[in-house]
Amino acid sequence: MINKQCYFCTNGFKHIDYKDTDTIKRFINQHSSIIKSGKTGICSLHQKKLATAIKRARHLALVPFVSR
């Protein structure tokens, strides 16, 4: 399903915290790669912020790099 509205804009997120793994995990697929914004409907500003948050979370092993 393709969402038409940015999740972070509608929920009033200004910054995306890397510690907030529950939110972050919504935007990674079964192989733990970042889902493209075309599928999730996230705006380009929040997609950039989300990508940094995911990469930070991966560094601290809060979110996996890969999973099978």
Partner: peptide, 17 residues
């Protein structure tokens, strides 16, 4: 084991649209 140092900004309360 590992650490991450980042520059942050003040926490802004969320205002849902």
């Amino acid at each position: 084991l590992r650490f991450l140092m980042i520059k942050t900004v003040k926490e802004v309360p969320r205002v849902p649209r």
